[in-house]
């Protein structure tokens, strides 16, 4: 059985997708079989990033219209990774997003069960790490992803709003669901947790403080920095997160 990692944050714009994509790519490069799912069903973007608009989306799977294998795409050859690299995409079409926004608790309960089944199936097929790129806050889809995850990486920006909102999530969601959590500080400057010498915030370990560098969003718009710039400070930070995930793969 592999390890499931939910990349989450209290607010949007913290860099969850950038971190998720790079984590997935670097773990695949190192030889792990990785599957990356776009769980941000209300603001999907992995299809745009990977420039793939498939027939079957995660939306259809969660609606019970197809099996999980129908929505997974093997992109190993595109990036030349040692391990296999799969992606499952959410539909960015506004009609599909509106449909997700209208789903009731009953649908979400079924979606949770389908996600658990998907996770089992994905690991049965030899995947080592399942990465769930979630939407921010306590949207149903995001909390469903957290519920099925073994680890939660909570991405936090070094400002008061992000700290206060994350603290609420830690107490009310991560701890309540008894998840193993790590904080990843992104877009850091002189006020970073790392610079202040703290190793923990809200009782959670801070496993990386990614510096605020202007070329990260620009480069990551068209490529995966982790693969194109192996010595970049961003890549070095992502590799630190990979090491933490690796420890959990070993434990499973």
């Amino acid at each position: 059985m592999g390890v499931t990692v939910a990349v989450h944050s209290s607010k949007g714009g913290t860099g969850k997708t950038c971190i998720s994509v790079n984590l997935a790519a670097l773990l695949a490069l190192e030889g792990y079989n990785v599957c990356l799912l776009d769980m941000d069903l209300k603001a999907p973007c992995l299809c745009t990033f990977f420039n793939r608009y498939p027939k079957w989306w995660l939306n259809e799977y969660l609606d019970g219209k197809c099996d999980i294998d129908s929505i997974l795409y093997d992109i190993t050859s595109q990036f030349g990774t040692k391990g296999r690299f799969f992606i499952g995409l959410s539909n960015l079409d506004i009609a599909a997003v509106r449909q997700i926004s209208n789903m009731d608790r009953k649908w979400q309960a079924k979606a949770l069960k389908l996600l658990l089944e998907a996770k089992r199936s994905i690991f049965m097929n030899g995947v080592d790490v399942l990465i769930l790129d979630t939407g921010p806050g306590v949207e149903f889809e995001s909390v469903n992803a957290i519920a099925i995850a073994d680890l939660v990486l909570s991405v936090i920006k070094p400002n008061k709003i992000s700290y206060v909102c994350t603290e609420q999530l830690v107490k009310g969601v991560y701890m309540t669901l008894e998840k193993k959590c790590y904080l990843v500080e992104n877009m850091c400057h002189m006020l970073s947790i790392d610079m202040s010498g703290k190793k923990e915030v809200f009782g959670l370990p801070v496993i990386a403080s990614i510096p605020c560098i202007c070329d990260i969003p620009m480069k990551n718009d068209t490529s995966i920095i982790g693969l194109t710039d192996p010595d970049h400070r961003f890549t070095v930070s992502i590799k630190r997160i990979c090491r933490t995930i690796e420890e959990h793969i070993g434990k499973k």
Binding site: R105, K106, Q108, A109, F140, A147, G172, V173, L177
Partner: peptide, 19 residues
């Protein structure tokens, strides 16, 4: 059924069992 928000609102002992 049991959705994740309801799961979060359950008392700890029931939440553990349901999980």
């Amino acid at each position: 059924g049991l959705d994740v928000m309801t799961l979060l609102s359950l008392p700890e002992h029931l939440r553990t069992t349901a999980t």
